[in-house]
Simulated assay, not measured.
Amino acid sequence: MKDYIEERVLALAEYIVTTNSTVRAAAKRFKVSKSTVHKDVTERLQEISPSLAAQVKSVLDVNKAERHIRGGLATREKYNHIKEDE
């Protein structure tokens, strides 16, 4: 694995663990695609640091369990703004 990829993988993992970030937020922060973030933290990180990979997995599992709630809140906010504009 190339050095810059390994550095990115570790930086992504540290960011996700310290901020409890979602894959989408991490992708935006590091200016890479969500697919890249996902591949980095699920496949590549396991080879580099299994303990850090376990921490990232626990954060991503929590985010996955809560995503339906965030989606509902976002939809409610969207329609509240539409009502206010009318």
Rank of each mutant, 00 (worst) to 15 (best):
Q55W: 02
E66W: 08
V56I: 05
S58G: 07
E66S: 10
G71R: 14
K57F: 02
R70W: 07
G72E: 06
E77D: 15
K64A: 10
I69W: 08
V62F: 04
L73N: 13
S51Q: 12
A54L: 08
Q55D: 11
A65R: 09
E47V: 13
V59S: 00
K64P: 00
R67Y: 07
A54T: 07
V59P: 00
L52Y: 02
K64H: 09
A54E: 08
L60W: 00
V56H: 00
R76N: 10
L73R: 13
G71Y: 07
G71F: 04
R70S: 13
H68P: 06
A65T: 08
D61P: 01
E47Y: 12
R67T: 10
L60T: 00
Q55S: 13
R70H: 10
S58L: 06
E47I: 11
Q55F: 01
R67E: 09
R70Q: 14
E47H: 13
G72P: 08
R70T: 08
N63R: 15
P50E: 03
K64S: 10
L73A: 13
T75L: 15
A65F: 04
R76Y: 12
L52T: 04
A53G: 03
L73E: 11
Q55P: 04
E77R: 14
K64N: 09
A53P: 04
G71V: 08
H68W: 14
R70C: 02
I48A: 02
G71P: 03
I48F: 02
S51I: 10
A74E: 08
N63C: 07
R76F: 09
V62G: 01
L60P: 01
L60Y: 01
I48L: 11
K57W: 00
P50R: 04
E47D: 15
S49L: 02
E47C: 14
L73Q: 11
G72F: 08
T75P: 04
K64I: 05
E47M: 14
R70L: 09
L73M: 13
V59C: 00
A54W: 01
G71L: 09
N63V: 01
G72V: 09
A53Y: 00
P50Q: 02
R70M: 03
K64D: 05
E66L: 15
S51H: 12
A74M: 12
V59Q: 01
E47K: 11
L60F: 03
T75A: 14
E77T: 15
A54Y: 02
R67L: 04
K64M: 08
D61N: 10
Q55V: 04
A74W: 06
R76A: 14
E66N: 13
A54Q: 09
S49M: 03
R76I: 15
R67H: 12
K57D: 09
G72D: 12
L73G: 12
D61L: 14
G72S: 15
R76G: 10
R67S: 09
I69K: 09
D61K: 11
V56M: 01
S49T: 05
V56L: 03
N63A: 06
A74C: 07
V56R: 00
V59I: 08
E47S: 12
V59M: 00
Q55Y: 03
I48P: 01
T75I: 13
V62P: 01
T75G: 08
E47N: 15
D61C: 07
R76E: 12
A54N: 05
N63H: 04
A74I: 04
L52S: 06
Q55I: 02
P50F: 03
L52H: 02
S49F: 03
P50K: 06
K57L: 07
V62S: 06
V56T: 01
K64Q: 11
A53F: 00
